[in-house]
Nucleic acid binder design. Sequence first.
DNA 1: CTGAAAGCGCTTACAG
DNA 2: CTGAAAGCGCTTACAG
Lengths: 342, 342
Amino acid sequence: MQEKLSIKHIANLVGTSITTVSFVLNGKAKEKHISEKLTEKILQVVAELDYQPNSIARSLRTGKTKIIGFLVDDISKPFFSGIARVIDQKASARGYKIIFSSTGNDKKRISEILNIFKDRHVDGYIVAIAEGLEEEIGKLISGKAPVVFFDRYLPELDADYVLTDNFQSTATASQHLLDNGFKNIGFVTIDTEQQQMLDRLQGYTDTVKRAKAKPQVLKIKYTNSEDSTEKIKSFLQDNPELDAVIFAANYLTMDGLRLSRIGEEQLLSSKAILSFDDFELLEFISPSITAIEQPIEELAENIVQLLLKKLNAGDVKNGGERSVLKINAKLNVRQSTKGLVN
Amino acid sequence: MQEKLSIKHIANLVGTSITTVSFVLNGKAKEKHISEKLTEKILQVVAELDYQPNSIARSLRTGKTKIIGFLVDDISKPFFSGIARVIDQKASARGYKIIFSSTGNDKKRISEILNIFKDRHVDGYIVAIAEGLEEEIGKLISGKAPVVFFDRYLPELDADYVLTDNFQSTATASQHLLDNGFKNIGFVTIDTEQQQMLDRLQGYTDTVKRAKAKPQVLKIKYTNSEDSTEKIKSFLQDNPELDAVIFAANYLTMDGLRLSRIGEEQLLSSKAILSFDDFELLEFISPSITAIEQPIEELAENIVQLLLKKLNAGDVKNGGERSVLKINAKLNVRQSTKGLVN
DNA sequence: CTGAAAGCGCTTACAG
DNA sequence: CTGAAAGCGCTTACAG
């Protein structure tokens, strides 16, 4: 536990200067023409003593902390904690650590957190926020801080994004239903301008139209779960010809399944059900429900890669071009949509 | 964006020394007998320019980073991400930030992560690890680092713990079943020496015995989910007199519910079911299932409080006494256990 | 009541 | 090929 090991000790032990030790430690031995012998000797002593340079002193000097700020609505949401887990892995492997905070969609809280992150001198930011909160976060981008957004696309923010390919996901899902013989596919979404919901809708309508079928869409003005369930009920009652339904978000799937709570399970039981977003319940209930699974691993990998690319290109002041990456989702086919074929 | 604001600028603007500014900023104005006038003026300039001391420089000087390392199996498990969210809130409010990592129960990974945390000079640790990994973590404690453990009690580690009161939780649950008229209560657990599982078992047996009833316990040597479901099936078939069953962990509840997958739902449908650990599914299925909910908010609050107490008592070298806090769980009563009364 | 100066442990221009 | 020294922005013993 010789805690107080410093570069000075190493230099003394080897019989050289801290400058030389520092160069070797930073892989600049070659560049600085340090002799191989000296380099070897330094590395050996460092290894023997298990010396690690003080990261804080380094941060103070270089201005880099190798810390990334991770900002989401609520870290305990499965999607976000899943992303957090993988991001931490990927970032750790590259020498970065993550600090996180949950905004709770509160404007004041966002500003506070960004202030804390800035105070901590984070090197970069990974952010997912909802519409309407662009202003708070806009300063970050105009301040040239390296930021990667994910989950939500915010048209007002000209920035870098890593997103699930929402269009592709529902297009594939719709095609899956058509391929399995379903002809009248309904689509339940919310009444919104959110880009990801519009994309999901578009993926559905384009695919259905190409098959010469007629889109049947329910756009719910979302207030609460009970109301939503009622509207789904009416929609299904008014359109008895539907043989399949796609729910465009996990909470809509839940609201649909709650029909069984109000004794209306027969409205769904005859139909193929497909959910955007996958969760444990869907695999468990009977019949198990086909779902679009967000590609967490790939999203996380791309987020980290993109951010690190920006961090390392930090010197290039012009910012370079913006990236909007769309990652393909996975379709987990289960009992609910196999009906007409298997 | 005058990024490069430093204590020197403030001192110059006010016309004093950085020493005085530092004293004022650290609330030592009184102690150091700085005149009220000067203090006021400094605070005013600081407020005007929105100056914030560089936290890294401060860390280098003081040796404190105000960062806490959070170490769990898997940050994406609902219990852990829930705890993480609340801990972040509580810690943020006190000027601390959390960095986390997931161990995946891998010994090598644990050592790596602890090394990273140490390298980052975290002030303290919040840790939940499984049995068998004590050795890796033991060095932390013997090294006098401030650590608070939660979730798991590890008898070998003489340390500070914050735990759900497992004994109380199943005692209360058992009493609830007895109060509602159930007489033959079964208990499904695993064959283990894990303290928390033993406590849950004890809470049940003590309560049942006090009511002059006979404990009926299934201890599963856990290998996999399918096998577990089979053993639960046999247990229920062999003990037809049971009118209630407590599952001692969420995965056991799931295994029990999977009886419906193998056409054996009637084994459970006639019985009151009660689950240790609550999750969405339990509220959703029909009948909804009564569950013991871990007190995440209180656990988090106590973890943070205890750790900060240790951090602030850092000067007191004798370490003080150890704490083992047990927090009461909550019983969420649902349809499954109301049968005989309502 | 206040300030000059050392020092936390690094990195890096500069000099030789 | 190598090293003395400045400096990152603070805190704090010491001096007055």
